[in-house]
Nucleic acid binder design. Structure first.
Lengths: 148, 148
DNA sequence: ATACAATAGGACAGATAAGTCCTAAATTAA
DNA sequence: TTAATTTAGGACTTATCTGTCCTATTGTAT
């Protein structure tokens, strides 16, 4: 996987939050998305620090997005979890790979990175919600026939 | 980086071996490529197991390629170090990502993987030799100063 | 006020990658 | 044969990621 599992959890969690802006409990999210509860809680706390989530403590508390889902990009989430330059660097780890001394995969990897970066800035949490809804329904309606 | 540092070390080491088929000491390679000596030795031993290198112990011993450099692909080395399926899986780690329920980056990442995989099977150790790996050491000495 | 519910945050444990160290085995040279 | 050299291999640190646990803090409800 190109990203860490924590980043994957964060993306799934953001997409799994209710779309109506109501607060959602960490443990409910964890149960629904099948993510280790305490670990997800930690990740959500980090997303609060990154200003992608806001939280309220106590009863009726929980987490919710600070912005509409369609205004949070996948790239933002990845940058929050893995730093803004996670895609930089030579694919093979060559320290001197660059314009003067490109590695044999430099060009291909550069084009590919640009493509991924573009996709990440275009894809939003809203796009992930659409996907999550589909497989959640399939999981629940396993007997009821698939819908595309 | 897409690959582990061990894989990067392995690629650099294979490319750094003498082209005339003579044996090369692990510590000489490590010094020339600025790679931690004992760690490189372990990696070279693994490459012997993978049949990409052959070794001889004792004075006048060392390591050399089992095949000409142009007949060892980057993909083979990556597969030896990270397994043959290192590029499989959803880029975001979504368990349900697939043909039926692709994640928003599924298509872009799939194209990217195919491109990288192709490049890896086309690029050989010979191509890495052409990079002139001496720049690794020189660049290090210019900026950080030599390290034992 | 009190009890309860939930996040905040730190300490801790396990797995894996990265890197070091020591000893055994093999090869060469005297 | 003996000594020196070099790989083989295992045990041992160190760092990071993953995951758990416990306590404090904050908020709601009674």
């Amino acid at each position: 996987m190109l990203f860490t599992t924590a980043t994957g959890y964060a993306l799934r969690a953001l997409a799994g939050l209710p779309e109506d802006g109501s607060f959602c409990l960490a443990k409910d999210l964890a149960a629904r998305l099948d993510i280790p509860g305490p670990y997800l809680a930690k990740i959500l706390q980090g997303l609060v620090q990154s200003d992608l989530l806001e939280s309220v403590r106590g009863p009726k508390g929980g987490f919710r997005l600070t912005r509409p889902a369609h205004r949070i990009t996948v790239g933002e989430v990845v940058a929050a979890l893995e730093g803004p330059d996670s895609l930089d660097g030579c694919i093979m780890g060559f320290p001197t790979c660059g314009g003067d001394h490109p590695c044999p995969l430099h060009e291909a990897w550069g084009a590919v990175k640009a493509q991924v970066a573009t996709s990440m800035t275009e894809a939003t949490i809203r796009d992930l919600q659409l996907m999550d809804l589909r497989h959640l329904k399939e999981a629940k309606e396993r007997s009821g026939g698939p819908r595309t």
